[in-house]
Design a binder for these strands. Structure first.
Lengths: 331, 331
DNA sequence: CTGAAAGCGCTAACAT
DNA sequence: ATGTTAGCGCTTTCAG
């Protein structure tokens, strides 16, 4: 049906081996031959068949980026989007393609779709079931964990300094003179949740402030929940003058709630977010937040994965991405 | 290296043909055989090799979703994200995987990566060079165009009723009593740009209003440009009382500009967006906008593509997605 | 229901 | 520099 290397070989008079070489290692073929071959190929609309190549090379030059279903919809997620984007760029550089899926997609009735598809490697973003990782290990497929802290040391991982990020956020609020500081903590994975909470508490303690449990809430990391919870907080007579929200989406919801109730940000209520996602600049006033270098996260995760695929031994198994305070207008 | 069908065959005592059948058509194998085979497979961590399968079936069960580079960063784009998400879901249902790329990625130095990778089909989102489409046609790879109006009738396409969407947006502003209505028109593809502009103009004309060219601007469809242009508009003494922005991102920028200048939305300046993207609910006040059923767009594009891949003849070649006014708080 | 055998299109030795 | 050949792992007739 489609034209193959044999058609081209016949047409140009060279053997199929030479035609193959003209594509995979052009310099090992005489210029004359190359020209003839490319001409014939063009005429026949020939394009090398990646499947056949993958078959013999035992490499697809495809990797998978798997986002935990909780983060659904995967692609819309303002935190993971830029990470994915960076990983894509890195992949493109290497002539690799990226499959994107949620961990839910993987559990198809008839089994391990992504294993069947013979990925050369996999990036897991967010939480993953240990069993999923093992599936890949069993097939000797390299895995990199992104924003996920496995118990085992064996996996490569790229993580964030959640604790310190939370610290500088709350520290900043203290610097601004706030003494009553609330927390809107998104229910991320236990590890992330806990690290950000501890960062918050440690700063309060350092400043001799007490965390009032009435002003510490855990919630879904959504706009709606941020708004809902903040609205409730606002009703309390002795409410805090500032809130640390553990991501920008929650913070945006919180800002909405404050503005709607007729109060001002930051004059009446100051707010700090986390992630420095796109959202932080969409809203007015713009959000003070904790920047995470998501670009670097995506890039590093991809680079580590490619290093493993290439059989290099990766020295630095665990990278922790630093965080940085970005002061805008909500504090 | 990896375990193959032969290893399993040896272990369970059946031939490799039977093992293959146990996976591709389980009902044609005795239950007894199936059990033995699956047990052996499990023990050996066997997973069918998709490459080998694709090789003989001449199908990869992969499709590509290609976004025009102008929309970069592809995945972050609040308009295309939900479309992609819907297409992904549809693909997952069919056991297909989706590759995501920008049209820029395709132009690799050494050529047509996505053709080499043997996609079963391709969805082009946004503008595409006609030549890119032809490349795929030559390889007999089905193509669906999304939000793109090709001159040729031959391609399947899923588009939006831009004209009518613009009409109902501006009509709504007229209903609210506005007589001076400005336009912030994003530089999308010429077709989209023109259709939304004409929709705007037609309503003005119908109401006996004149479009003042000073208040009709074309700009990059970004937050920054929306803010910048609106700020300039606000300086004019006889400025409009309402603006139609041709997407939500521009509208969000415009809202920021208005609020920053100390004016109120919608009391001083009313604003309507377009797309009903995520952004419209992030900002306060929430954005009145034109909803496009992006869910349907993604789903239909994928379905049409699969119909072509399956060799069905697609009756309805061109689908136009309707638009709907969503009234929130900026008007 | 099961087995034998012929490829799918390409690459990678090994020859020439 | 070019040709020959033996597979890569699986599906799919065709027999039995």
């Amino acid at each position: 049906m489609a034209t193959t290397i044999i058609d081209v070989a016949k047409k140009c008079g060279y053997s199929k081996a030479t035609v193959a070489r003209a594509y995979s290692s052009p310099q090992s073929v005489s210029e004359r031959a190359r020209e003839k071959i490319y001409a014939a190929a063009k005429e026949l609309h020939y394009a090398p068949n990646a499947i056949a190549r993958a078959m013999v090379r035992q490499r697809t030059e495809n990797i998978a980026f798997i986002i935990h279903e909780k983060q659904y919809p995967a692609i819309l997620n303002p935190f993971y989007s830029p990470i994915l984007e960076a990983a894509m760029q890195e992949a493109t550089k290497r002539n690799y393609s990226i499959f994107i899926t949620t961990s839910q997609d993987m559990r198809l009735p008839n089994g391990e779709m992504y294993i069947e598809k013979n990925m050369d490697g996999v990036i897991f973003a967010g939480e993953v079931a240990g069993s999923s990782i093992q599936e890949f290990q069993k097939q000797n497929i390299p895995v990199v964990l992104l924003n996920n802290c496995p118990d085992a040391e064996e996996f490569l991982s790229v993580t964030i300094d959640h604790f310190h990020g939370a610290e500088i956020a709350v520290e900043h609020l203290c610097d601004r003179g706030h003494r009553r500081i609330g927390l809107l903590a998104g229910r991320f994975s236990p590890h992330v949740f806990e690290a950000r909470l501890q960062g918050y508490l440690s700063v309060l303690e350092r400043h001799g402030l007490s965390g009032d449990s009435r002003f510490i809430a855990d919630l879904d990391p959504t706009l709606e929940d941020g708004e809902r919870v903040m609205t409730a907080m606002l009703d309390q007579p002795d409410r805090p003058t500032a809130f640390f929200c553990t991501n920008d989406t929650i913070a945006a919801g919180a800002v909405k709630a404050v503005l709607r109730s007729g109060l001002r940000v930051p004059e009446d209520i100051a707010i700090v977010g986390f992630d420095d996602s796109y959202i932080s600049q969409v809203i007015e006033p713009e959000l003070t937040t904790i920047r995470v270098d998501t670009q670097a996260m995506g890039r590093l995760a991809a680079q580590k994965l490619f290093d493993m695929i290439d059989g290099k031994d990766v020295t630095e198994k665990h990278v922790e991405i630093p965080t940085e305070l970005i002061i805008r207008s909500t504090t």
